[in-house]
Amino acid sequence: MSEINLSELYSNMQAEMLQTLRTGAAAFTHPGTKGDNTEVNWINWFAKYLPSRYAVDKAVIIDSTGRCSNQIDLVIYDAQYSYLVFHHQDSKLIWILCRCAVDLLTPILSASCPIGMFSIIPINKAAI
């Protein structure tokens, strides 16, 4: 029976994601374009590796009284047992109770980290 080195496998997956981020950082110099590109890379990455029950998008979170958040860069939500409040083009309203993780991706750019790693700022239910 053959064996798979999971540590090496996950290290290779991490290297693949870092290379994708580096490529986008090298290709785009405008901060807005670079940020949009990085957000799309993270959304695609999570969409590829999360179980199909979950979905990941940019979205606005809404509660039952109609209070809304600002646009959230990355929302992981239960796509199997919930529904979108509203979906128009690429814009989505998602019930606050359906979200599993909500994060703002804030770039940290420095000489030691030129590709722009992100700090993740969790947002709780009271944040909207």
Rank of each mutant, 00 (worst) to 15 (best):
I4P: 04
A47W: 04
A25Q: 01
L74S: 01
W45P: 01
I123D: 05
I43F: 07
Q14G: 02
V40F: 05
S7G: 06
M117F: 15
S52R: 13
M17V: 06
L21H: 07
D90E: 14
S110L: 02
G35I: 03
W95F: 05
K125H: 13
I108H: 11
A15D: 09
S2D: 02
A55I: 00
F118I: 09
H88N: 12
V56E: 00
L97M: 13
E8Q: 08
L93R: 03
S52K: 15
C98D: 12
A111I: 05
Y77V: 04
Q71N: 14
I96T: 06
N70L: 10
S112I: 11
L9I: 03
S11R: 13
I115N: 11
Q71D: 13
I128D: 05
I94S: 00
E8V: 04
R99D: 06
N124C: 08
A127P: 03
L21N: 04
S69T: 09
Q19A: 10
W45S: 04
A101P: 07
I76M: 09
V102A: 04
A27Y: 12
L9Y: 09
L21Q: 08
G35A: 02
E39K: 05
L21K: 07
M17K: 14
T38N: 14
F118H: 15
G24I: 11
C68W: 13
Y10N: 01
R22E: 07
W95I: 00
Q14L: 09
D63Y: 10
A25I: 01
D78A: 01
T106G: 11
E8R: 14
P51E: 00
S112G: 10
I94T: 00
G116E: 02
M17R: 14
Y54N: 01
M13N: 05
N44D: 03
I4M: 04
P107M: 02
I123C: 15
N5F: 02
P122C: 03
G32H: 14
T38P: 03
D90C: 13
I4L: 10
E16K: 12
Q89R: 15
N41R: 15
A127I: 09
C113G: 11
L74G: 01
I72C: 10
T20R: 14
S11L: 10
V85A: 08
I62Y: 06
L74D: 03
S91A: 13
P51W: 11
I108L: 12
C100G: 09
M13Y: 10
L105A: 03
I120E: 03
L74I: 13
T23D: 12
